[in-house]
Write a protein that binds this DNA or RNA. Structure first.
Lengths: 343, 343
DNA sequence: GTTAGCACTCAACTAAGAGGAGTGCTAATA
DNA sequence: TATTAGCACTCCTCTTAGTTGAGTGCTAAC
C-alpha cells in the first residue's frame, strides 16, 4: 500500500510528465504547490516508487517517467473527474446547432471536433447497421441479367448490392419473389437475414418461383458480407504533434493500422458500456505499444450503439479525454434518441 | 538548343538521380555505359547545363541534381516509352481475375496494386455518378414525418437521402407523387435532376399534390449536394519510403491534403484524355512543391470517366509510372466497357 | 524521519580535425 | 579547337574530445 506522500508524488510526476513530456526530477517536484518536503526526501520516495514498478528512469541519472503500471495506477486511483471548460462545451454544442437530420453528418462533425479538442486522433463508429430491421425490400432490374437488390431499414439506412440474375428469370418471377420476400423479411434484423432466407423463405419460394435455389444463394452471398459500421476519423495526423512520435516508423505503423478496418474494429469493446482505457501494451496490437486508447459507446435510438475511440500516446491527458468523452457520449446519445425515437 | 552530348548527360543524370536520390558527380557519369568522354568534359557540360537551368547543385562542391526545368525537359523530350515487366502485367491482370461485377471493388483493388507496383501513393476516382441516368425513383416512408428518397441509376448505383415530410402529406399523396416523378425523371442524368424538378415537374405536381412546393424544395436540396465521385487511396504511407520525405512536416502536409476532398479533386484534369504530368511547383497546391503528380483517365461504359493519379516525389520514376498508368488505363477501360455495355 | 552536502552519471551540445567526393580552372595534349 | 589530366579548393559527413547541466544515490548531520 502506498503512503499518502507517495500517492502525492506519483500524481505530481504523472501530471507533470503528461504536460511536459520531460522526465521529472526531484527539485522540480519540490517546487510544486502542495509539496512541503525536500528534494532529498522526494528522491527517496521516488526510489521506492521505482522499486514498486510505478516509475522508470530513461538513464541512470535522469528524472523519473511513469511506467505503464504507473499510468494504470494513476488512471485507476488518482484520476479525479474534471470539469471541462465552457469554451469546450460550447464547441461541442456547435455540433448540434444546425438542426441536422443525418446521423452520419453529426458523427463526422463529432470526430473532427473531438480530435481538435484533444489534439489526438479520434475514431467514431457509426450505428451498427446489423441491428436495423428491414422496412422494405426491392429489386430493380438493370439489364437482361443484372439487377440491384435494395433493403431500406427502419432507421432509413439503405443497403444495396448488384447481382447477376439467373438466366431464365422473368419479370413476373421477380415481382412474385419481391412480394414473398417483403412478406417474410419485414421486421427482421439485417444480421438475421441469411438465417431467415435459408430457413423459411427458401421453402416458400421453391413453390412459386423458378431458380429459387440460385436466387436465394445469390441473395445470401450478397447480404452476407454486409457493410459493417461505418468508420469516421478525426485528426489522423495529430500524432505528428506528439514528441514521442517524431519517429517516422511508429507513425507509419499506426497510420497503416488505421487503414485496416479489422484492426480498427478490434480497438473497441463492443457491448460494454462506460469508459475504457487501454494503456500501451494492454492493447492487442503490437503497433500500439506506445499508445493509449480510450473508448466509450453512445446510443442511437433504443437498440443501437455507436462507439468512440481516442488514440494518443501513453502520455495522454487522461483527465481531459475522459471528461470530454463523457460529455460527448451523453450529448450524442441525447441527440440521437430525441430524433429517432419514432419507428 | 542542346547538343547530343548534353542530352545524353542530362538523361544519365536524371535516370541516375531517380534511382539513387544522391547528387550525381562527373566521375560517376563517366563510368556509365555509352559514355565515351572524360569526367573533365562532363564537368564542362554540366556547368553549361546548370547555366541553362536544367541542373542544380546542393552546395558548391556537390554533384548535380535535376532542377524542375530539368525534369520537365526530361519528361517532354527524353522519356522513351518503356515496356513493363511480365510479372507486373500479371499482377495487374490479377485485378480482373475473380470475375467481379462491382465496379467499386475493382477500383479499390486497382488502387492497392498501383501503389504496390509504383511504391508511391495512388488515388483513383470512381465513376462520375453525376452522369448516371435515373432508372427508378422511390420514396419509403419511415415514420409519420420522415422518409427516404431513393434513386437507382442505370449503372446500378443507388443514391439515397433521408428527409422530413411536410406535415400534411398522406400516403396517397406520396404514391401519386412517386408515380409522377418516375414518369418524368427516368432517363434524366443525376446532374440534371434539379433543373428538371424545378422546371417541368413542379408545375405538374402542383396540380395533383398538396405541399408540392415544399416537397420539391426538399427534394432539390436533397439531390443538390449529391455525392461526388468516390475516392480510393492506395499506399497512403508509401511516401515514408522516400528519403526526401523523412521530414515529418512535409509528410504531414501531404497526408492532410489527401484528407481534404476538394484538394484531392483539384489534382485531376477533368475531361482531358492522355497522361498528364505535373512537376513540383507546377502543382497548384503549395504542399505539393516537392511532389510530382501523374494523372490519367479511364472510361466506364461509353459516357463515364474515372481518373487515376500517382503522387510521388519530383524524383519520381516517370518512365515506369507512365508505362504502368498506360496499361492500367487501357485494362480498366476494357474491363468496364465489356461488362457494362448493355443498358 | 528529514534534509543538506557531495561525488558521480549521462545526455546534449560544441568544437576541432580527418576523410572523401566533387568542383572549377589551367595547362598540356590530340 | 576540342578534350583531358592535374591540382588546389570547397564543403559535407563522420569521429573524437571536452564542457555543461540536470539529476541521482549515498552519507552524515539535524
Amino acid at each position: 500500500m502506498l503512503t499518502n506522500r507517495q500517492l502525492q508524488i506519483l500524481q505530481v510526476i504523472v501530471d507533470d510528465f503528461i504536460m511536459s513530456a520531460q522526465p521529472v526530477g526531484s527539485r522540480q517536484i519540490s517546487k510544486k504547490q502542495g509539496i512541503t518536503f525536500s528534494p532529498a526526501t522526494i528522491r527517496n520516495e521516488m526510489a521506492d516508487l521505482e522499486e514498486l514498478g510505478f516509475l522508470e528512469k530513461t538513464h541512470t541519472s535522469s528524472g523519473r517517467v511513469p511506467s505503464e503500471k504507473g499510468y494504470r495506477f494513476y488512471v485507476d486511483h488518482l484520476l479525479r473527474p474534471q470539469g471541462i471548460n465552457s469554451r469546450d462545451i460550447q464547441q461541442i454544442q456547435s455540433i448540434f446547432n444546425d438542426r441536422l437530420v443525418e446521423v452520419e453528418h453529426i458523427i463526422r462533425k463529432s470526430a473532427n471536433i473531438l480530435s481538435e479538442l484533444t489534439s489526438y486522433t479520434s475514431i467514431l463508429l457509426g450505428p451498427d447497421v446489423q441491428r436495423h430491421r428491414v422496412k422494405r425490400f426491392s429489386i430493380v432490374p438493370l439489364s437482361s441479367d443484372t439487377a440491384v437488390a435494395i433493403i431500406v431499414t427502419n432507421r432509413g439506412h439503405v443497403e444495396n448490392r448488384m447481382f447477376t440474375l439467373p438466366p431464365d428469370v422473368t419479370a413476373a418471377d421477380l415481382e412474385k419473389m419481391v412480394n414473398i420476400l417483403n412478406e417474410r423479411l419485414i421486421g427482421v434484423s439485417l444480421e438475421d437475414i441469411h438465417k431467415m432466407l435459408e430457413a423459411e423463405v427458401l421453402a416458400v419460394l421453391q413453390q412459386h418461383v423458378r431458380s429459387a435455389d440460385d436466387f436465394i444463394h445469390t441473395l445470401v452471398t450478397a447480404t452476407m458480407h454486409n457493410s459493417e459500421s461505418k468508420i469516421f476519423y478525426g485528426g489522423k495526423t495529430n500524432m505528428f504533434n506528439q514528441p514521442e512520435f517524431h519517429d517516422l516508423n511508429k507513425v507509419r505503423m499506426i497510420l497503416d493500422l488505421m487503414e485496416t478496418t479489422s484492426q480498427v474494429q478490434s480497438l473497441f469493446h463492443p457491448n460494454e458500456s462506460g469508459i475504457h482505457i487501454r494503456i500501451g501494451s494492454e492493447n492487442k496490437q503490437l503497433e500500439m505499444e506506445n499508445c493509449s486508447v480510450i473508448t466509450t459507446t453512445y446510443s442511437i435510438g433504443d437498440d443501437q450503439q455507436g462507439a468512440i475511440a481516442i488514440i494518443g500516446p501513453t502520455r495522454m491527458d487522461y483527465k481531459r479525454v475522459v471528461a470530454l468523452l463523457d460529455v460527448m457520449r451523453l450529448d450524442l446519445t441525447q441527440a440521437f434518441t430525441k430524433n429517432l425515437n419514432e419507428e
